[in-house]
Simulated assay, not measured.
Amino acid sequence: MVRKGFFYIRLFVALLTLSTTIPALFPISAQAFTARNLMYGSEGYDVDELQSRLRLLGYYWGNIDGNFGWKTYWAVRTFQYNFGIPVTGEVDMATKLKLVKATPSWHSGSNGTSGSSSSSSSPAASAGGSAGSSSAAATAGSTNFPSSVRGLDQSDLNLMAHVVYGEARGEPFEGQVAIAAVILNRTHSSKFPHSIPGIVYSPGAFSCVDDGQVNLPPDASAKKAVMEAVDGWDPTHGALFYFNPAKTSNAFMWSRPEIITIGHHIFTD
């Protein structure tokens, strides 16, 4: 009888230990995706996060209601296609990691608008790649911009300035404005996502994102260039692409109709 009592005591201690150890090893947060795959018919706060992140990138415009319906399904498929992931409409871990890396300024409680900026809420956001560490690009120096202008907020403007500085520092001022203008031109094209973060963090879109230079703090010239482009100056005359002919042998870029050359960059349709 005594031995049986000791057995139950040891079992209770073991269960108590597990109850404190497991959460420490596998923390569960309402601000991070769960491990389960998400698919049509899924429900829960992780679907909320999925919808919110997709909206931040301009892929989803339905209600953020935690219900994985057809609008969410097609938004996921479009995201997967644009980011080079197998197009299944199902959100597995590979899709989650890509989505987290593409939305470093997202935080729990945001409604999917790109104005929310903080250090990433999800542990996966820092996993691999320069985009994963680009929360600095989404937040640093944003107070130098107005809170909102022509539908863009401080986070959008600041991210554009990081791209301008990373891609065109050392170029003439007109060339810096041109880079910002290309980003804005892409927001109006059906070929690209309709948000600044979605455009900037699309795979291979900008070399400064690939090599991490997007995280360098922009100077006053880059910030001024962004505001000039937002105010309507487009030296590229509607260009959607550009490249440095001394640095690329990409056949696609060379095949594009040339519009204008500014500094070291050729701007194309």
Rank of each mutant, 00 (worst) to 15 (best):
Arg3Ile: 07
Lys4Gly: 05
Lys4Ala: 12
Gly5Leu: 11
Phe6Ser: 08
Phe6Trp: 14
Phe6Gly: 05
Phe7Leu: 03
Arg10Ser: 03
Arg10Gln: 00
Arg10Asp: 00
Thr20Ala: 02
Thr20Pro: 00
Thr21Val: 09
Ile22Arg: 04
Pro23Met: 04
Gln31Ala: 13
Gln31Ile: 02
Phe33Lys: 02
Thr34Gln: 02
Ala35Gln: 03
Ala35Leu: 06
Leu38Phe: 05
Leu38Cys: 03
Met39Glu: 15
Gly41Met: 06
Leu50Ser: 08
Ser52Val: 02
Leu54Asp: 08
Arg55Glu: 06
Tyr59Leu: 15
Tyr59Thr: 14
Tyr60Thr: 13
Ile64Pro: 00
Ile64Asn: 00
Asp65Met: 01
Asn67Gly: 02
Asn67Ile: 05
Phe68Ile: 08
Gly69Pro: 13
Gly69Lys: 08
Trp70Ser: 15
Phe79Gly: 05
Gln80Thr: 03
Tyr81Ser: 00
Pro86Gln: 12
Thr88Ile: 12
Gly89Cys: 14
Ala94Pro: 14
Thr95Val: 12
Lys98Cys: 08
Val100Lys: 04
Trp106Ser: 08
Asn111His: 08
Gly112Glu: 12
Gly112Ser: 09
Gly112Asn: 11
Thr113Leu: 04
Gly115His: 11
Gly115Arg: 08
Ser118Gln: 06
Ser119Ala: 10
Ser120Gln: 05
Ser120Pro: 06
Ala124Tyr: 13
Ser126Met: 12
Ser130Met: 04
Ser133Met: 11
Ser133Arg: 12
Ala137Cys: 10
Ala140Val: 09
Gly141His: 01
Ser142Leu: 14
Thr143Lys: 13
Phe145Pro: 14
Ser147His: 12
Arg150Met: 04
Leu152Gln: 06
Asp153Thr: 07
Ser155His: 00
Asp156Cys: 07
Asp156Gly: 05
Glu167Gly: 06
Ala168Leu: 06
Glu171Lys: 07
Phe173Asn: 04
Glu174Gln: 12
Gln176Ala: 12
Gln176Asn: 13
Val177Arg: 11
Ala181Trp: 11
Asn185Cys: 03
Asn185Arg: 04
Arg186Leu: 02
His188Leu: 03
His188Gln: 03
Ser189Val: 00
Phe192Pro: 01
Phe192His: 01
Pro193Arg: 00
Pro193Cys: 00
His194Trp: 00
Gly198Ala: 02
Tyr201Ala: 02
Ser202Pro: 09
Gly204Ile: 14
Ala205Arg: 13
Phe206Arg: 10
Asp211Gln: 10
Asp211Ser: 10
Gly212Phe: 09
Gln213Tyr: 07
Gln213Phe: 08
Val214Phe: 07
Leu216Met: 09
Pro218Glu: 14
Pro218Met: 13
Ala222Val: 01
Lys223Glu: 04
Lys224Tyr: 02
Asp231Leu: 10
Asp234Lys: 01
Pro235Trp: 11
His237Ser: 10
Gly238Ala: 02
Ala239Glu: 02
Leu240Pro: 01
Phe241Trp: 15
Tyr242Leu: 12
Asn244Pro: 07
Asn244Ser: 13
Asn244Lys: 12
Pro245Phe: 11
Ala251Phe: 06
Ala251Ser: 15
Met253Gln: 07
Pro257Met: 07
Ile259Pro: 01
Ile262Tyr: 14
His264Ser: 13
His264Asn: 10
Ile266Tyr: 15
Thr268Tyr: 04
Asp269Trp: 09
